[in-house]
Each structure stands twice: as C-alpha cells, then as structure tokens.
Design a binder for these strands. Structure first.
Lengths: 152, 152
DNA sequence: ATCATTGCAAAGCTTTTGCAACATG
DNA sequence: CATGTTGCAAAAGCTTTGCAATGAT
C-alpha cells in the first residue's frame, strides 16, 4: 500500500469508518492515477483487480471521501464530476476542451498573493465568507491541436 | 425587447437559425436575470409567459446558445449546469457552497495581468493552447452564514 | 413551399435509495 | 457480535433522441 493510500485509509478509520477492501481499492485507483477520473472510469479500473465490486459502492465511497476532503471533486462540464487524489492544497486546473484532459499546476506565489488580497476585498464587498479558490484555464492540449477538428 | 436580447437574436439569425418565440423567450429569461439559472429554472421562468413550451426545447436552445457562445455555461457542482447571459469573457465567479448562489465579479487588472503572464508560461510548459480562464472562489454567502448548519 | 423547429413520448445516462446478506472492528 | 457496509434491483434525476405536426422565412 502506497503512503498516500495509507494517509487516506487511516483518516477513514480516524473518522470511525470501517476499512473494507472495496474502499481500499477505490482509494488506490484514485491515488495511482495522475488523471481526474469519472466514477465510471474508477469503477472500471477497480473492477480489474476486484471483479465483484458494485458501481454503487464506488459512488458511495467517492461521496464519502470527497466529504472528508480526502480526495478532490471537480466539475468541468460533461455530465459527470471527476475525482483526483490530493486535497485542497492549492493546485489549479488546465482543462482541455477537446478531450477533457485535466492537468494540475501549482499556482505561483505571485498569483496566490494577489488572489488572497482579492479574496479579502470580495469578502468585504459581498459578505461572503470565502473558503477556497480555483483558477482554471481552458484550451486545447497538444494532441487535440494536432487532431483534425473532430466531432466534438 | 432588450438590447441584450437583440444582440443574441440577431446573432442567431446571422448563423442561419430561425427566430422562434420559444427561442426568444429562453433568451429573455436568461438576459433578464442576474443569476445563473439551471435548465429547469429557465423552463419554469419561461413557462409563466409561454405556457406551451417544452422542456426539451429549453434544453435544445441552451445547447445552441452555448455552442454559439452567446450565453455562458457554468458547472459548479450539483447535478446541473447553469447558464447566464454574457459570454465567458472575464467575469469570474463567487459560488456559495451552501445555497449554490453565484455572484459574478470583474477581475481586477492586476490579477488579469498576472494571469495572462501565467497563461504564457503554462502554455509553453504544457503545450496547451489556452483559450480562456476562470477564477472561482467558493465560500458561504451572508444568508448561509447566518443559517443554522442546515442539512447540506 | 421548404426545411428547420417544436413537443410528445420514450430511451439513455448518471446517481440515489431500500433492503437483505455480509464482514469489519 | 453489533453495526456499518455491500450489492442487487429498482427508482429518481437530468438530458438526449425519434418522429409527426407545426411554423418561420
């Protein structure tokens, strides 16, 4: 079991949840991928090593992990959310509008600094209590730029 | 008909689409609201003045308008996308994680400037052709802060 | 008059819920 | 062993598609 897996599984136990093989498998599927995966993709990945698992269990596990903020839930369009390892540590997104690929990047200090200041201003003006921020770029990845304008 | 409506409707005709009362109604529902509306909300709004309309037509119209970039499609979580007037051009979002309310704000010049520079760097490093960006803050709006921790 | 558009109904998806059987701590 | 968890099946969303009737240009 990878260290990142262990972080998550011990967190689960700390919160009083039981550690089932299914949960471990879902956790591993997420931590062992760099990409953002949809529930169905995770289900398929898990099914390879763990044939009996139910899609329902994947959904329930994802919901649980996201609520505990042990994984990151992202909505980029399409019908499904997608999930990725790593919590709220400020990584931001670069989303390909062609194939849906998502690349994370760390926000440079300069931006973070300005964003935090902006947060303060917005909070004062709007009355919101701001908890988090996300900077997202959309465009076309290298492959999709080369590809002839596909049906998408 | 509001000027913003006219912009959109003439754009539709320019693209060779017919100008039906249903389409006008959907356009008007969107331009006459400050909020981001879900397809169902738009359907209900339109139904008031236009009882016969089908939800299907609303979906089709939204899809069309979003493809032509005459309205802005936003995914914030929950199961539905939401739509708002204006293209995606540089307004950013403040999303309440309690009630889902979305407030737009214009990004200050300082941020835009830094973001554009970051875009260049990311583009070079990742090979993406970057088309747009979105800065999104999440938090709790004033009402939800006051509300006793609800079921959400 | 023509061809896009509408609305209905039905299908397709993703996601959630009810419940008996099961397995973890 | 007790309770949380699983998996099936079925329900509940939201969204799309097929098709005849309608209506804009």
């Amino acid at each position: 079991m990878k260290p990142s897996d262990r972080n998550i599984t011990t967190a689960l136990r700390r919160h009083g949840y039981k550690l089932t093989p299914q949960r471990c498998a879902v956790v591993h599927a997420i931590t062992s991928s760099q990409d953002h995966l949809t529930p169905t993709a995770i289900f398929e990945k898990v099914s390879q090593n763990h044939p009996g698992i139910g899609l329902v269990t994947v959904y329930r596990t994802l919901k649980l992990l996201a609520e505990l903020e042990l994984i990151c839930e992202l909505h980029t369009g399409g019908n499904c959310p997608s999930y990725t390892a790593g919590t709220s540590h400020h990584h931001h997104h670069l989303v390909c509008s062609g194939c849906g690929k998502v690349v994370d990047f760390a926000s440079p200090r300069l931006i973070e600094h300005n964003v935090v200041e902006l947060e303060g201003r917005l909070s004062r003006e709007s009355g919101f209590r701001i908890d988090d921020h996300l900077l997202e770029f959309t465009g076309l990845c290298q492959l999709c730029q080369k590809a002839p304008a596909s049906s998408v």
